[in-house]
Design a protein around this nucleic acid. Structure first.
Lengths: 319, 319
DNA sequence: AGGCGGAGGACAAACGTTTGCCGGTTGTTG
DNA sequence: CAACAACCGGCAAACGTTTGTCCTCCGCCT
């Protein structure tokens, strides 16, 4: 019995006589044999591992993505290495460099890399981005811009006529798209939108955002994300501004915690777990050599979750 | 120039002539050479990977642990594979079985496995547990029991005389220890403690817990963890019970969100990031062949974070 | 009977390291 | 000057797979 026969018996159904195959399987079972991933990797050049890079593992925004990606990968017998890029371009590149020989591909969520670096990495090994379109690359996008339009309509129907947008980083693709959508939606709905920011998508930056909002003479604010919205709520409470009585607040993403704050945060729910799932799906397709190439972009819809932080517009006070 | 010389030049400082070593390093740099992890793993039997198993990646309790573990591992050039055991014993064992040949060791956070299985796995490969002592194994424990005593003292000093403990799963080692600590602390402080539960450490179970608490004629409740406390707060709000006016609530762990709820949750802060760090530290020590063996248990202290959910006891109403 | 082809098994090379061993050169010491 | 050690480079085996190629049977067809 040659080693090669055993190998084929276990991995190439039909290649060897069924009787021999059975004999091999039984022996394997009895000896407690399981193939060595290292040996496999060395021989095949594939490790069945995928890197999942996120800017910050403790940001609840990424929990869903991590979970969705993991679930899809496991279904195909892949495992993933989770990398925390610490919100830093250097750490992100360091991780990619270190992991490139180890993994078959990567999922990059909300990468901080610029287009050039991203493109250059995408030549090195198969990767899929989430919320970060790269020309010529497959990716998953969450249509928060569409949700923003919906949120604005919601506010308009509540009687708000002047609304602030507490925006995110200028470098953010999402932010750019949302500003664009807001412009046209505002015109359509007859609502005035005041763009503020940029603010970092962190709770601490909510104070500055809230102050800017209060200064902007509006009755409602759309925050770049939920973390920023949390910070805005904190600051508004501190300044004794009633939510939603005097000010309505809308977040984005519906992360863990959005229903913990009081009042509950009205927010644009992003299907993050599905996004992770889709990203892994795309990556696995690219890793499958039998699969036709080509780049695909998946865009996932969002929906508005209305909680207590939005209400009818207060009567405008002319000052 | 033999391959072996190059290998030694890169990994065994001093073994080859410094001039040769430099030459090798330069060539490596120029050719963009980096050693293949697969080849290394095959030859050395070590992969420089570690499994990190948690019952639920979306539970904020584990964020800190993940982050701390990752940081410590990265410092030694290890990477980790994050596994979501989905709160299931089967999934946990499946993951361990699948990963055993791939990783050098494992960190098990809050494992759901019973002692026998755990001991049996610990013979298979090096592992370290967090909050789950296994005889003869290294581990990290967070002293939430001590914190519970502190919390009870806090409540006593606010005038509470009868306090409920909304306990966690019977299988939980933490829960058992905390019940024991509460017994003696209650005696010392002259406070009556009513043990309730078990409740699953999830927000949804907070409703049942809150109802039990309201029925127990107490003025304060210590919850098994923050998630349960969140659920209790939800239910109390629903039933229009003022917190902390009519009922004080104390959580445990200080997870993300504890300062988002209104009122802010008084809670026993667990140094989770340090726990992850310590766990990785222990594991790396065991993986280092030059390191003396022996099992170590690290116990980390907790401290009470007082927020708005605890206040002076209301006057007792006799009914 | 001779030729053909398919099935099934074996051989060996290849993947990229690490490491035990050997041997040559050089320097040191009695 | 001889003996010996230290230094340093090379050879080859080993790790555990996968896979291209070859070989041998065996049945079948003409």
């Amino acid at each position: 019995m040659a080693i090669s026969t055993a190998s084929r018996a276990l991995t190439k159904p039909g290649r060897v006589n069924e009787r021999t195959a059975t004999r091999v399987r039984e022996a394997a079972l009895q000896l407690g044999y399981s193939p060595s991933p290292s040996g496999r990797a060395l021989s095949s050049g594939r490790t069945r591992m995928v890197a999942l890079v996120v800017p910050d593992v403790t940001n609840p925004y990424f929990f869903g993505i991590v979970r969705g990606t993991a679930a899809r990968l496991r279904a195909d017998g892949y495992v993933h290495v989770l990398v925390d890029a610490e919100e830093s371009v250097e750490a992100e590149e360091r991780a990619l460099r270190a992991l490139r020989p180890t993994v078959d591909g990567a999922v990059l969520a909300a990468s901080r890399l610029n287009d050039d670096r991203l493109t250059s990495w995408s030549l090195e090994f198969p990767m899929v981005t989430v919320n970060r379109p790269v020309p010529g690359q497959s990716g998953v996008l969450v249509d928060t811009a569409g949700g923003t339009g919906q949120a604005l309509a919601h506010l308009a129907s509540l009687g708000h006529r002047r609304v602030a947008y507490a925006g995110g980083p200028r470098a953010s693709w999402s932010d750019r798209r949302r500003r664009a959508v807001l412009r046209t939606a505002a015109k359509r709905l007859g609502v005035e939108v005041v763009g503020l920011g940029p603010f970092a998508p962190r709770r601490e930056d909510g104070a500055a955002a809230a102050d800017a909002v209060l200064h902007a003479d509006v009755t409602a604010v759309l925050a770049f994300d939920d973390l920023l919205a949390f910070g805005i709520l904190d600051r508004l409470a501190e300044r004794a501004v009633d939510v939603p009585g005097a000010m309505s607040v809308v977040g984005c993403d519906d992360v863990f915690g959005a229903d913990l704050v009081r009042p509950g945060l009205t927010t644009i729910a992003a299907p993050l777990e599905r996004a992770g799932h889709a990203a892994a799906d795309l990556l696995l397709a690219r890793l499958d050599p039998t699969h036709p190439g080509g780049t695909v972009t998946v865009e996932l819809p969002t929906h508005l979750v209305v909680r207590g932080s939005t209400g009818t517009a207060p009567l405008r006070v002319v000052r």
